[in-house]
């Protein structure tokens, strides 16, 4: 009697991007997303999921994350973050993965929220929080082109209310 030890081909889920491109991902990896999980569990025969709000570049990035954490739990990011450098807040792989430009991080976070992937969403938020850590108000306003909406007396009052700067 002979056994067939050949690996059984895993079912693949096809993710359709906003541009209509198809990206394939193994079902076991795709289950990291609660959104995709509910689609698969709700409709047994589903093999294609349409993601009209997410472009293919971001989907590829999400798939990279899904594949990496297919068989293990993502590390928990400490709150509050301890440093403005991501390497000190999370694993080296996560820090390297999220080391992207601001627009990419925002898109990735929106995608993670849509796909209901809380660890990825938290990673993106932690990356964004790093940009705020240890920065003065003026620096933040200048970097993100935010206009000061507070009248001068209100701004003084805000500073007066907070004793934190004493330390």
């Amino acid at each position: 009697m002979f056994y067939n030890f050949n690996k059984i081909e895993e079912v693949k889920i096809r993710l359709r991007s906003a541009e209509g491109h198809i990206c394939e991902v193994e079902e076991s990896a795709a289950l990291m997303s609660s959104f995709i999980r509910s689609m698969i569990e709700g409709f047994n025969e589903v093999t294609e999921v349409s993601l009209p709000n997410i472009n293919s570049v971001v989907i590829e990035k999400v798939i990279e994350y899904m594949r990496h954490y297919k068989d293990k739990d993502p590390p928990i990011i400490k709150k509050p973050i301890i440093s403005s450098k991501m390497e000190e807040n999370t694993s080296a792989w996560d820090a390297g993965f999220i080391d992207a430009d601001w627009n990419m991080v925002v898109d990735l976070m929106t995608a993670a929220d849509y796909l209901m992937m809380i660890p990825l969403r938290d990673l993106c938020c932690a990356k964004m929080a790093c940009k705020f850590k240890g920065r003065s108000i003026d620096e933040l306003r200048a970097e993100y082109h935010i206009e000061n909406e507070f009248p001068s007396e209100m701004e003084e009052n805000l500073e007066f209310q907070h004793p934190w700067r004493l330390e």
């Binding site: 990011i77 709150k79 509050p80 973050i81 976070m109 929220d113 969403r121 938290d122 938020c125 932690a126 964004m128 929080a129 705020f132 850590k133 240890g134 920065r135 003065s136 108000i137 933040l140 306003r141 993100y144 935010i146 206009e147 000061n148 909406e149 507070f150 701004e155 805000l158 500073e159 907070h162 934190w164 700067r165 330390e167």
Partner: peptide, 21 residues
């Protein structure tokens, strides 16, 4: 989104965060 980001900040950073706009 801002709230989730703020959850990663210490109280000192929250001060700067709260004074942006």
């Amino acid at each position: 989104i801002l709230f989730i980001i703020a959850r990663h900040l210490t109280f000192r950073d929250l001060l700067s965060f709260g004074q942006v706009n």
